[in-house]
Every structure is written in C-alpha cells, then in structure tokens.
Design a binder for these strands. Sequence first.
DNA 1: AGGGTTGATTAGACCGGTCGTCTAGTTTCT
DNA 2: AGAAACTAGACGACCGGTCTAATCAACCCT
Lengths: 193, 193
Amino acid sequence: MKTRHDNTRQHVLETGQRIIAGKGFASVGLNEILTAAGVPKGSFYHYFESKEQYGQALLEDYFARYLADLDALFAAEALSAQERLACYWQRWLDKQAACAEQQCLVVKLGGEVADLSDPMRETLRDGTGQIVSRIARLLETGMADGSIPPLDAAATAQTLYQLWLGASLLAKLQRQAQPLENALQFTRQLLSR
Amino acid sequence: MKTRHDNTRQHVLETGQRIIAGKGFASVGLNEILTAAGVPKGSFYHYFESKEQYGQALLEDYFARYLADLDALFAAEALSAQERLACYWQRWLDKQAACAEQQCLVVKLGGEVADLSDPMRETLRDGTGQIVSRIARLLETGMADGSIPPLDAAATAQTLYQLWLGASLLAKLQRQAQPLENALQFTRQLLSR
DNA sequence: AGGGTTGATTAGACCGGTCGTCTAGTTTCT
DNA sequence: AGAAACTAGACGACCGGTCTAATCAACCCT
C-alpha cells in the first residue's frame, strides 16, 4: 500500500520528467504523461493536488538527484578540487551533446515557468542556489589545496554557472555543442591562472 | 490597403510580443492576444498561416528591432568602443530590473521553443548569432582604438553573451538584479585588463 | 476466521478553452 | 460597378485540468 503509493507517484514523476524535459511544461498534457506511465488519469489527483504542484514536485525530485550526484562527484577524494570541477563541466558538456532531449531542466523550464508559477520558480531558485553554493565551496577547497588560484569563490561560482546556463541555451538553439566547448575553454582559462 | 494591412499585422505582433514575453508561447492562446489587440480572430489567419508561423514572425520582428537598437548604440561615435559596450550591458541590466515582465525573448522563449518548432528555433539561433557577431565586431573596434585589451574577439563575445543570458535566467528565477550585477562586474573586470 | 468497514485507488464524465476552418459580410481601390 | 483585400465571428474537433462516484484492498472486531 505505502510501497505501491510511492512507486506510482515516483513513476509518474520520472515519466513526466523525461517528457517535460523534451517538450516543456505548458505544452504537455497530463494525458500524455499518464498514458506513457500507464497510470490512469483519475489517479493523478490522488497523488498531486494540481498540475502546478506536480511540476514543483518534479523539480524537487530533479534537484534532489542532481545535488546527490554533485555531492558524490565533489567528494571524490582521489582527485584535486580542480580536477573534480573540471569533471563536472565535462559531464555537463557530454550529457547535453549526447542526447538531443535536454537534460538540464533549469535551462528548459526556467524561462517558461518563472512567471507562470511561483512555487515552481522558488524551487528552481533554491535548487540553482544550492548548485552555485556547492561550486563555491569546491572552489574554496581548491584554493586551499592549491589546485585553483585565489579568487572570490562566491562570485566566481555564480559567474561560471551563469556562463554555462547561457551556453546550454545557445547550444540548444544551435543544436550543437560549440557554445559549451567555448564555455569549457573559458572556464579552464579562468581557473588556471 | 497596404498601410492598413501592415498596421493590423504589426499591431497583432506587438500586442502578442508583450503578452508572450510575460506568459510564454504555449500557454497563451490566440484568443487572448487577439482580444487584447482588438482584432477579430478571423483576421488572424489572413495575416498568418498558423500560430507557429506567427511566433516566428514575432521573433523576426523582435530581433529586427533589437538589432536596430544595437546598431544605433554601437555606432555612437562620441564614445569609445569600450564605453559603447559598457552602455549595452548597463541597459540590459536596467531594462530587466525595471519591469518584472521579461524583455529578453531569448531567455523567455529559448528553452521552451527550441524543441517545439524548428522555424522558431532557427530564428532565435540566427538572431542570437547576429547579436554575438555585432558584439565581436565592437570588441575588435575597441582593440583597434585601444579602449579594450587584445583578446579573441569572437570567443569573448560569445562568452559574454552566454554569461548575460545565464545571468538573466537566474535574475528571473530570483526576481532580483543581483545576478546581472555580478555579470556586469565580471564583464568590466574582463574588459579592463 | 470471515464479513463489514475504511481508506486508497481508479474510471471516466464534465466544462471550458484550444487552434484552426469556413462562409458571409464589409470595406477599399480601380 | 466590380474585384480584391480584409473582417467578422460561429463552428468543429479536440484536449486541458478537475471532480465525483464507483471499485478495490487491507484491516479490525466480534
């Protein structure tokens, strides 16, 4: 009962994430998601209050996993902070280059959702804040272990994240990885001075 | 006849631009736009083939004006290239800070539209390309007149534009200008070395 | 142990709004 | 006056999210 509950809920979240990452939020109907998930429409409102609340839950789930990945990577003790960070950017590039369907929900949904739903906007705001602050923390680690030159960690982390968000957007518009490669090159240059 | 034609068409484009800049593309119906414009629905399909084609026309119109503004600013001979560029970024910041409703359609629609409509994606791609190349050209001018240090103009222009797109997105999520101020500070630092 | 009760889950009806079409009608210019 | 450009808005087919009523599963109490 509880198990089943959670499974169904989680299953709907994951199915929706894949579809919404491709088509956006407003232009996808519940029907499409629920059909794909094999869950009847009627059940939806048992698990979620509304489409909006569902969207928020979806983003929360997304960030939870994203941040868990990040923590795993950033904790890798075998590598220097500089290497861990390089690995993060490289992954970002690889992931987006690999599949046409967007992975980064911040880029995909940020613009659309920001003035559409406050709860979703806040979830995105908090999630991106977490990401930036983890990058900042890693930068500090890197300055401490000497693998990264001394910089203002918070400002640099934000700048880098902004740069990569913009690069993702351009890459999406151009359907090629060049903007991300540009960002990577710039990032390398910035952190190796 | 031609005049009237153009007026109505243009009026629908401008009204739609305001509404769509606030709510996104998919979540706005033609009805809302046409009611706001005071144009009956029947006329719409005289001027546009479909909602998609309308969206593309809207973006073309947007970029045409954006680029015209840009050209006017970048041609200001009283200022050094460095000053002209600084003015561009400052305007970006001011405009976004002033009105909650998003001005930059690239940020607002980029993520949403990229996998929704190829014509719209291509229009965005070309428009952003034009912007970046104008920035690059101005950077070169600045290197020639000595107001900007020597850099790879193309790569730097792209990096800066990416940075500002990402900053716009974060500012939208946070509903405050701080990310843009961060971008501005970084930009200044980069161009004054 | 088994029947009844309770809460979790499903099914699908429902209303309103969507895009796009289509036929009449009006205006404008030649 | 006639032809073209343009407007008007009803209409159809469909799909959106929501909600109510029925079904199902699990547990409790006698």
